[in-house]
């Protein structure tokens, strides 16, 4: 309410009137908040994979390996981002049902969802997902297995780098492992609302980079 706006701002001004020396913004080096005990040098996919495993993620380096994994758990129905179909569809045999549109009325039919990630963060083992880069919010969330696809040169070294390059996108998400809870007696259970299995697939270098398309 507009009346409330003026009231609150006036209250704020009045409340602050008595403060003589306002605390200045402390300048600090961004590296302050970066983990110092683990090296982030060398191949960023390697560094990312180590941290991703530490948060119970599963890094996979080839489409063949991914298909084997899905087959072994009988995850044969899934959603694949339309942009990824040309690269990935050939690896999926006739035993799979693949859809390029996520139908929310059949939410539980999809055992896996494969979507394009906008990047990853080596320091924390996080996947970066955006509204423009990821075809369906539900496709990356509702199925038991989420596969985020990323290219090696899209991996950020650390969180300050990921923030500095954060896109002008209304919905950016860092996903650090499977959906989980410890609400019941502090016991960790994965797959509460979202994926119980979080996979990151490394795409070949010649796959084109995600370009934020203007809406």
């Amino acid at each position: 309410m507009s009346g409330d706006r003026e009231t609150i701002l006036k209250r704020v001004r009045d409340s602050l009137a008595g403060i003589e020396d306002r605390t200045p913004y402390p300048e600090y080096d961004e590296s302050l908040a970066v983990t110092a005990i683990r090296s982030l040098d060398g191949d960023l996919w390697e560094r990312f994979s180590e941290r991703f495993v530490a948060v119970n993620g599963l890094p996979i380096t080839s489409p063949e390996e991914l298909v084997e994994y899905l087959k072994s758990f009988e995850h044969t129905t899934g959603y694949i981002d339309p942009d990824l179909q040309t690269i990935l569809a050939p690896y999926f045999g006739s035993g799979f049902t693949i859809e390029d549109r996520f139908d929310r009325d059949r939410l539980d039919d999809y055992r896996f969802g494969i979507t394009r990630a906008r990047g990853a963060i080596a320091e924390t083992g996080s996947i970066v997902v955006t509204d423009r880069g990821t075809s369906s919010r539900l496709g990356a969330l509702a199925p038991w297995v989420h596969v985020a696809c990323v290219r090696r040169d899209e991996i950020f070294r650390d969180t300050p780098a990921a923030v500095a390059h954060m896109e002008d996108d209304p919905n950016v998400i860092w996903i650090t492992g499977p959906s989980k809870t410890a609400d019941v007696e502090g016991i960790m259970i994965e797959g509460v609302h979202g994926p119980g299995v979080q996979i990151c697939l490394l795409l070949p270098d010649d796959v084109r980079k995600v370009q934020p398309t203007d809406a």
């Binding site: 948060v55 996520f102 083992g125």
Partner: peptide
């Protein structure tokens, strides 16, 4: 809060979804 380097879903939201995004 929980001894995690980062909370699993860290969302940065600045407005309504983009055109073309079916969900949300």
């Amino acid at each position: 809060a929980t001894g995690q380097q980062l909370t699993v879903y860290t969302e940065f939201i600045s407005g309504p979804k983009v055109e073309g995004q079916p969900d949300g």
